[in-house]
Design a binder for these strands. Structure first.
Length: 114
DNA sequence: TGCGTGACTTGAC
DNA sequence: CGTCAAGCCACGC
């Protein structure tokens, strides 16, 4: 596991996010040991296969959003719309602008300093 | 070996 | 609440 590529760790960590909850890139980064690699997490998700499956497990990439609680704009492919729909489908309230209430849906309730 | 790139974060204005 | 700039990490060429 420690020898596995970063993106593999990211996928596995994301796969641990329970249904109906969301996690931020920074949070995922912290869990895999990258205290400042939120961008790397995004990079890893970008490399995620279309099947969204790793090691036979589905990777809920749609549960990963940025620290503002907004869906990242990956610039095309209509991905954000798809992600918003997927989140609502799990019972997560998503505003018209694609914003999610982190204080209510954030996984494990972990938050950074205020 | 070094530079550019990106689904990010945070602090300032 | 909106935009700007700087920082950080891993990967591909």
């Amino acid at each position: 596991m420690t020898d596995d590529p970063i993106f593999l760790k990211v996928w596995r960590t994301v796969a641990h996010v329970p249904r109906g909850r969301v996690a931020t890139y920074g949070q995922i980064a912290l869990m895999i040991g990258l205290h400042r690699g939120a961008r790397t997490v995004g990079w890893a998700l970008r490399a995620l296969p279309d099947d969204c499956r790793v090691d036979g497990k589905a990777v809920p990439w749609h549960r990963v959003i940025n620290a503002r609680g907004a869906i990242s704009d990956r610039g095309g492919g209509g991905g954000i719309g798809r992600q918003a729909v997927a989140l609502r489908r799990e019972g997560i309230a998503v505003s018209a602008g694609g914003l999610v209430d982190l204080g209510r849906y954030l996984w494990r309730g972990q938050r950074r300093r205020s």
